[in-house]
Write a protein that binds this DNA or RNA. Structure first.
Ligand SMILES: [Mn+2]
Ligand SMILES: [Mn+2]
Ligand SMILES: [Zn+2]
Ligand SMILES: [Zn+2]
Lengths: 158, 158
DNA sequence: GGTAGACTGCAACTCGTTTGCAATATGAAT
DNA sequence: ATTCATATTGCAAACGAGTTGCAGTCTACC
């Protein structure tokens, strides 16, 4: 699904469910559609064209977009939450997370083959009575910048 | 590595690196070794035998255990951090996370075959110059209790 | 254009985590 | 065993991401 279509689809979804299309919602959505990495609420806020929009509204918009399953949450472990378009509106993918600087990048595709996934789902279904709905794979390590000595002023994470 | 050995190994590691073996450290370690699910700082604190130990000391102990790579962090997304023994001291495994109640359970084994992992590592190494050090797989869905209507007083998560 | 009420900005609040500091306990040396 | 330098603790205050109550505003619909 291309950005243009994602925007239209989510907008329609909002209207469809009786939500109003307000300035904060339109702009937050635009920022999310335009980004190729998951963003924190503060980052989204910083990228809004109309800077009078309150950070609380960013959070509230994310909340409704999540209920519509248009947005999902992820994060570097123990860091702020990060948000991105959910599966129907962007291709299934996973993340590269830098241990040092905390940077998160998309990793196209999924190394878990259909066959393996089904086997896993069946296994936990039986042995734990756990029903798997989605999965998330994080590849954790060192990004290009951090791998050769610390770059500019990048900090090492705690 | 069995619990007994993990405890000994981590204790030795502490001494080795010049850390003192204090009551808070010994007790936090014991709680972690005894648990089969990752614990939050508050949960660890609650399980300490000596309840005069301060929560801040739990956090500080976790901090040094992490630097020794004896403990790793995980979490349900957007929830408190959770801690557990790291790979050399416990078998490599992943987690089942309930979307509804936030419960986290261990999932023995790893569906990512050696072959696949190597291929993935090579791929991101080349295309992104990202060096993978570890990976984390979360199987997200509904636990046994949450799957059939809400149990006792369990809340649905936001 | 007028209206009901969904939604926003703001400021106050929550709660997990961190930190400065004076008091205490540890490990090593005697 | 006693002493000592200092690593570590308890406490309380601070921090920061995320949430919430409320009065005023804007949207969707007529
Ligand atoms: Mn992504
Ligand atoms: Mn675990
Ligand atoms: Zn990095
Ligand atoms: Zn559950």
């Amino acid at each position: 699904m291309n950005p243009r279509d994602s925007r239209t689809a989510v907008t329609a979804l909002l209207a469809d469910r009786g939500y109003r299309l307000t300035a904060p919602r339109r702009q937050v959505l635009d920022v999310l559609v335009a980004s190729r990495t998951p963003l924190s609420a503060a980052e989204i806020h910083r990228r809004l064209e109309n800077r009078r929009i309150n950070l609380a509204s960013v959070y509230r918009t994310i909340y409704v977009l999540r209920r519509l399953e248009a947005v999902r949450v992820t994060d570097a472990i123990g860091a702020e939450q990060r948000f991105e378009l959910a599966d129907p509106f962007s291709a299934h993918h996973h993340h590269l997370i830098c241990q040092d600087c905390g940077r998160i990048d998309d990793f196209e595709g999924c190394p878990l083959e259909e066959r393996v996934l089904r086997a896993v789902n069946r296994r936990v279904r039986r042995s734990r009575r756990f029903r798997v709905v989605q999965h998330e794979l994080r590849l954790i390590g060192a990004c290009a910048d951090c791998d050769r000595g610390r770059p500019d002023g990048a900090e090492r994470r705690p």
